[in-house]
Write a protein that binds this DNA or RNA. Structure first.
Length: 508
RNA sequence: GGUCCAUUCGUCUAGGGGUUAGGACGCAAGAUUUUCAUUCUUGUAACACGAGUUCGAUUCUCGUAUGGACUACCA
C-alpha cells in the first residue's frame, strides 16, 4: 500500500528562480501529475538576512508562465496552510526542544565571534575545525556546563542555538532513487545548528524535516547540492521517530555553467550571453536580468528544453508537450551527471514551437509590437505576414526584424547587394517590370509571378538578376519571403512606389 | 584538506560483455528556391586513463585522473 504522492517545491526567496530551480519544480510537478499526486509550493524564508522582496511573487509568476500548476501552497492555500515558513515559525522551537529533551540535540552558547576564533586557531595548526563530538563537551554547551548555568544562560543571556547531537561512528545508510544506496559514517559529520540565535528561527534542516513531515510529503525531489546533508536529514527523521513516514529522496544532477566551471547560479545573471531566469527580473538593488519570456521564448519550448536536461524518455522523441512529459516521466530515467544548458538548442526548440503555434495566436502577439511602433495593419494582412514570418523566426522577438519591410519601404539599400545588382541593364529592366506589374489586375502573388515570369521568358532575360534587383527595390536587401508574395501583400501602389524610389536613388 | 557524487561525439543524450556505439543541437556539403530562410539528403565527431575478471570489455570490479557538490547561527 503506497501512500498518496505529495511532492513540494520549496524555494528560498533570496532572488529570482533560475533555470535549475525551474527544472527542479518541473520534475516535481511531472512526478506529481504522473502519479496522480499533489504539487505543493512552500516558501522557505527562514533566512531573514537574505530575504529578497518580490522573490516569492516572481516564483509564482514564473511557475504560472511555465504551465506548472500549484495544487497547494502560498498562492492557493490548502489543508496544511500556512505554506510560508515565516508564518509557521512559532511551532519549530517546540520540535527543537523535543530533540534536546530526548538527548538528540543540545544547547550551544558560543557566539559567532568565539567560533571564528576557534576556527582560526585550528587553521593555524593546520587542522579543520568541526563542531562535533570531540568539541561539544569542551565548548560552552548544555552538555558541558552545569545544569544551573545552562538554565541561567538560557533565561538571562538569551543567546543560544540548538545543535544536533550527531552520534559517533555510526554508518548511516540511505537510499536515493537516482543514485542508489549511499553510506556515510556519522563521524565525518558535524553538529549542525537546528535553531538559530540570531533570528530565533529554525535552520533549513529543521524546518524542512518538520514541514515535510507535517505536510505528508512522500517524495523529496531536490538538487544534488542537498545530498551531503541527507544523512543529517535521515538522522532527524529517526530522532523524531518519524522513520515510518520518511519520504523517499531523489537528488537531481546539477545544471552547470555552459562554459567554464561550476554550477549555474543566480548571480550568473546575464554574463553567460543567455538568460538564466525564466522571466525578466528586476532586483530590488535596481539591476535587471533578462528572462526567457521577454527574450522571445515560448513557454512550451522553454519547458521542453529544460525537461530534457538530465532526463529523457528513453526514445528518440525530443519534441514533447507538457502532457507527453507527464505521461513519460519517471525518476528512474533521470541521469546522474550534471548537464550544461545549450542556448543554441533552446532556439531550435523555440523555432519549432513557433511554427506549431496557430497564426492567430502569433499575430496577436505580433500586433503588440506593431502597436508600440504605431503601425496599423488590418487583420487579414497581419495573418498573411505572420504565416510567412513564423517559418523563419527563431524567437518571437525576431518578428519585427523579419517583417519590417512589409510595413516600411526601404530607406537605404544594402550596399553590397546594390552594387551587385543595380547596374548594367537592370535599372532599366526594373522600370519595364514596373509596367508589367502595374498591369496585373488581380494582385495576388501567383498572378504577379505569372506575369513577370512570362515577360522574363519572352525577352530571354536573366531571371536571377531581374528578380534580385526587384527585391532590392522592394526589401532593400537580398533577404525575405517570396518576392511576389511580398508585392501582393504590400499592394500594387506600394510596390510601384518602391520600384520608382530606387530609380530616383542616385547615391546609397 | 575532508566527505559524498559523477565521467559516451563540442553540447544534450540512447545503449550495454561480442553493435558499422544510435538520435538531437551545432557545424560542413548537396538538393530545392528569384534571394535569405525553411524543408529534405549526406557528412563531421564520443565510450577519461590504467589494471583486473573474461574467449572477448566502452559495458562488470578496483585504482588513478578529471569535474562537481558540500564542508555557515544560507538555503
Amino acid at each position: 500500500m503506497s501512500k498518496e504522492v505529495r511532492v513540494r517545491f520549496a524555494p528560498s526567496p533570496t532572488g529570482a528562480l533560475h533555470i535549475g530551480g525551474v527544472r527542479t519544480a518541473l520534475y516535481n510537478y511531472l512526478f506529481a501529475r504522473k502519479n496522480g499526486g499533489k504539487f505543493i509550493l512552500r516558501i522557505e524564508d527562514t533566512d531573514s538576512q537574505r530575504f529578497v522582496e518580490g522573490a516569492e511573487k516572481y516564483v509564482i509568476e514564473a511557475l504560472k508562465w511555465c504551465g506548472i500548476e500549484i495544487d497547494e501552497g502560498v498562492s492557493v492555500g490548502g489543508p496544511h496552510a500556512p505554506y510560508r515558513q515565516s508564518e509557521r515559525s512559532a511551532m519549530y522551537l517546540a520540535y527543537a526542544k523535543q530533540l534536546v529533551e530526548n538527548d538528540y540535540a543540545y544547547y550551544a552558547f558560543d557566539t559567532a565571534e568565539e567560533l571564528k576564533t576557534v576556527r582560526s586557531e585550528y587553521e593555524k595548526r593546520g587542522e579543520t575545525f568541526s563542531y562535533n563530538a570531540k568539541v561539544r563537551e569542551t565548548l560552552a554547551t548544555s552538555l558541558s556546563l552545569p545544569a544551573e548555568e545552562v538554565e541561567r544562560r538560557l533565561t538571562e543571556e538569551n543567546h543560544w542555538v540548538v545543535r544536533f547531537k550527531m552520534p559517533v561512528n555510526e554508518d548511516i545508510h540511505m537510499t536515493d532513487i537516482i543514485r542508489g544506496d549511499v553510506t556515510v559514517n556519522s563521524s565525518t559529520l558535524d553538529d549542525k545548528v537546528l535553531f538559530k540565535a540570531v533570528d530565533k528561527l529554525p535552520t533549513y534542516h529543521l524546518a524542512n524535516i518538520v514541514d515535510d513531515y507535517l505536510m505528508e510529503i512522500s517524495h523529496v525531489i531536490r538538487g544534488e547540492e542537498w545530498l551531503p546533508s541527507l544523512p543529517l536529514h535521515v538522522m532527524l527523521y529517526r530522532a523524531f521517530g518519524w522513520t515510518e513516514s520518511m519520504p523517499q529522496f531523489a537528488h537531481l544532477p546539477l545544471l552547470l555553467k555552459p562554459s567554464g566551471k561550476g554550477k549555474l547560479s543566480k548571480r550568473d545573471g546575464d554574463s553567460l550571453g543567455f538568460p538564466v531566469f525564466p522571466l525578466l527580473w528586476n532586483a530590488p538593488d535596481g539591476s535587471v536580468s533578462r528572462g526567457y519570456r521577454e527574450d522571445g521564448y515560448l513557454p512550451e519550448a522553454f519547458i521542453n528544453m529544460i525537461a530534457l536536461l538530465g532526463w529523457n524518455p528513453g526514445t528518440e522523441q525530443e519534441i514533447l508537450s507538457m502532457d507527453e512529459l507527464i505521461d513519460l516521466f519517471s525518476l528512474e530515467k533521470v541521469g546522474k551527471s550534471g548537464s550544461r544548458f545549450d542556448p543554441e538548442k533552446a532556439k531550435w526548440f523555440n523555432a519549432h514551437y513557433i511554427k506549431e503555434t496557430p497564426n492567430e495566436v502569433l499575430a496577436k502577439e505580433f500586433s503588440k509590437v506593431l502597436d508600440d511602433k504605431k503601425i496599423e495593419c488590418e487583420d487579414a494582412k497581419l495573418l498573411k505576414i505572420t504565416a510567412i514570418v513564423k517559418e523563419r523566426a527563431l524567437l518571437m522577438t525576431d518578428f519585427w526584424e523579419l517583417a519590417s519591410y512589409f510595413f516600411i519601404a526601404p530607406t537605404s539599400y544594402n550596399e553590397k547587394v546594390f552594387k551587385k545588382f543595380y547596374k548594367d541593364e537592370n535599372p532599366a529592366r526594373v522600370v519595364e517590370a514596373s509596367k508589367i506589374i502595374s498591369e496585373v489586375e488581380d494582385f495576388t502573388g501567383e498572378n504577379i509571378h505569372e506575369a513577370l515570369h512570362q515577360w522574363i521568358m519572352a525577352n530571354e532575360y536573366p531571371m536571377g538578376k531581374i528578380m534580385n534587383t526587384l527585391r532590392l527595390a522592394i526589401v532593400g536587401t537580398n533577404a525575405g519571403a517570396d518576392l511576389c508574395q511580398i508585392m501582393s501583400i504590400i499592394g500594387k501602389k506600394d510596390t510601384l512606389d518602391r520600384i520608382n524610389a530606387i530609380g530616383q536613388c542616385t547615391k546609397l
